[in-house]
């Protein structure tokens, strides 16, 4: 079962600035109040491919669970560990090609993949009309719930046919129904979240327009010092 969601958006900012905002989007809450659910951000790899000049970056973000509470409630505690508010690790890979003028990004959850895997892909580019003041972005999110597959694996391994006959959790609700519900709930939540993530990008872009990168770095440093002395 797979659910796909695609949206297009145009930022009224030049392409290089938008790519910088992408890297800055989870900096301090002072710069992006829409990123308060992001607990940490780390770079695990960053290198330039010498043959293409493309910058490849891999980062890992820790976010307060993107899994809607409604989804968590649907699941048996054996899968969720009995909690409804866990944090999830997100792996983000990005490639920037300054010469050709595009940036492609991909984010996916690292935990809960057995329940729901969410893959978000974005392609940022200079508009075909060569309007250099604008940047286009296509966002494609693929939701896939693998709950049923996991259960089938388990059944075949452990021969739990008795559970199925008695009408266990999945038998009653139907694995397909659950998969679809999880995908739909997650998709609705994501559409909401996409709006917020765009708002966050816009705030950073506006700040970059006003003060440039040095201003942003300065603000970041000041915010950090405040939080450390608090």
């Amino acid at each position: 079962m797979v659910l796909t969601h695609t949206t297009n958006h145009t930022y009224a900012h030049p392409f290089p600035t938008v790519t910088l905002a992408f890297f800055l989007r989870y900096c301090s809450p002072q710069l992006n109040p829409f990123a308060s659910h992001v607990l940490s951000t780390d770079t695990i790899d960053s290198h330039i491919d010498p043959s293409t000049g493309r910058l490849h970056t891999t980062r890992i973000h820790l976010k307060k669970s993107r899994m809607p509470p409604a989804v968590m409630k649907l699941l048996p505690t054996t899968l969720t560990g009995g909690t409804t508010s866990q944090a999830s690790y997100i792996l983000e890979t990005s490639v920037v090609d300054m010469r050709e003028g595009w940036m492609s990004t991909e984010s996916r959850n690292l935990n809960f993949v057995g329940v729901l895997s969410v893959v978000e892909r974005q392609m940022y580019s200079i508009p075909k009309t060569k309007t250099l003041d604008n940047t286009e972005v296509e966002t494609k999110v693929v939701f896939k719930s693998r709950l049923g597959e996991r259960l089938r694996d388990k059944l075949s391994h452990q021969n739990l046919s008795a559970t199925a006959q008695e009408g266990g959790f999945f038998a009653r609700l139907g694995a397909r129904g659950i998969q679809r519900s999880i995908e739909t709930l997650a998709s609705t939540k994501t559409q909401d979240q996409l709006g917020k993530s765009r708002e966050g990008m816009k705030m950073i872009l506006e700040r970059l327009r006003q003060t440039g990168i040095i201003g942003v770095l300065e603000l970041r440093r000041a915010a950090r010092e405040r939080s450390m002395s608090a």
């Binding site: 989870y26 900096c27 607990l39 780390d42």
Partner: peptide, 10 residues
């Protein structure tokens, strides 16, 4: 940037 997931690496 936000914090590192490991405070000792901040």
């Amino acid at each position: 940037m936000s914090q590192s997931l490991a405070p000792e690496c901040n």
